[in-house]
Computed example of a mutant assay.
Amino acid sequence: MTSAGNWTGRVGHVWAAEWRRTDRSFADLARHLDAAIVHVAPNTGQALDIGCGAGATSLTLAEARPKLAITGIDLSDELVAIARQRLAHRRSSDPGAAPHLRFLSGNAVALVQEAGPADLVISRHGLMFFPEPVNALAAIRTGAGEEASLVFSCFGDRARNRFATIADDATGSTAALSRDYAPGPFAFSDADQVAEWLAAAGWNEATAAQVAFDYVAGEGADPVADAVSFLSRIGAVARPLAEATAADRPIMLARLSAMLSDHRIGDRVILPACAWIWRARNVSASSNIAPDRFRPPMR
């Protein structure tokens, strides 16, 4: 389980250090999410990026909608510092770039309330870490304006995300199964459950599209070694490797390397992955969409 304390501590530190490889791993998904966001984004008004991380989604939206005021919010001071550095770098080469973009660190729910009515709320894999999802989604909605749109992504079923299952195979660990909600990467993987949470929080017209994407774990002259290095720090492999004995760790790393070799394509290691892209609106009347209408067939 990844808690708020993790993001302001060790996890936030690691993700800040690994932002380039993390953005690379999400690049194929990002093109789908960014297109969904731009499709509903207004030209003016205010947008909020919840769990903005190192700022990739906010920066892309700012380029597409330069007159839109965008606020990226993240718990991690270190990730927000990276996002601000990226923004400053972009402005150094183009002083007129992203004139209405800013990044803030702190509690997203509190900052949403303070920021004023938002016309658009977005998130790339940032909503799965709230300890009480309905309360968080409701608070975000009350901070949004009438007719506001919500667009976010989250991982799909764990079994369809090889970066996660490879941890089981390489380390001999098994993901704990529980019917109780716990924040974490796959907390929003059940589309039926997420639809119920959105409805309970007051979001309407919820639709979800399932996207299969390439999770690029490694690249370069030795992409397998790069992937081993990356996954040893980020994701499901990192904890069992860190907790392994001195004798077991080299064995686990050798297994991981061999398995990643099976996914090498040229100078990249590509792992199959799956995510949901959700859209919802803050309107007065619910469309009461049935689960079989918002969940498309697996691709």
Rank of each mutant, 00 (worst) to 15 (best):
H39R: 09
D168Y: 04
A54E: 13
F129A: 01
R299C: 06
R264N: 03
D226I: 11
V112E: 03
Y181Q: 07
G220D: 11
L59N: 12
A206M: 05
R281F: 02
P133H: 02
P296G: 06
T60F: 06
L177I: 11
I50D: 00
Q46N: 01
P99Y: 12
W197G: 02
Q193K: 10
A56Q: 15
F163N: 07
R295E: 08
V134M: 03
G235A: 10
D248I: 05
A247S: 14
A148Y: 02
P42C: 00
V40W: 01
D23A: 12
V40S: 01
G145C: 05
R90F: 02
F103Y: 15
E18Q: 14
G172E: 15
R31Y: 05
I140K: 00
G172H: 08
A16V: 08
I37T: 06
F103M: 10
A144V: 00
A98R: 08
E114R: 13
P185K: 09
A54C: 14
R24S: 06
T57A: 13
W203K: 10
S286N: 14
R65S: 02
L111P: 05
L271V: 01
Y181H: 02
R20W: 11
A164L: 00
D222H: 04
P42A: 01
R102M: 10
I289P: 04
A200N: 10
D157T: 11
A159T: 10
G12N: 11
N282K: 12
N282V: 07
W276T: 07
A187H: 00
L127S: 08
T22P: 06
V228Q: 04
N135I: 04
R20G: 11
P250A: 10
R91Y: 08
A246C: 10
E18W: 08
E147R: 13
L150D: 03
S232R: 11
E63I: 11
A108L: 12
M128H: 09
G143C: 04
G218N: 12
V283A: 13
M1L: 03
L120A: 02
D34E: 12
G51H: 01
F188V: 05
G218E: 07
E196Y: 02
N107M: 07
R102E: 15
V121Q: 02
D23E: 15
R299V: 08
A176I: 15
V134P: 00
P95N: 07
A41F: 01
A164T: 10
Q46M: 08
F230I: 05
S25D: 13
P66H: 03
L29F: 03
Y215A: 11
V40T: 07
V211I: 15
S93E: 05
H100L: 11
P133S: 04
T44K: 03
L75M: 06
I37S: 02
F26I: 13
D28M: 05
D94Q: 14
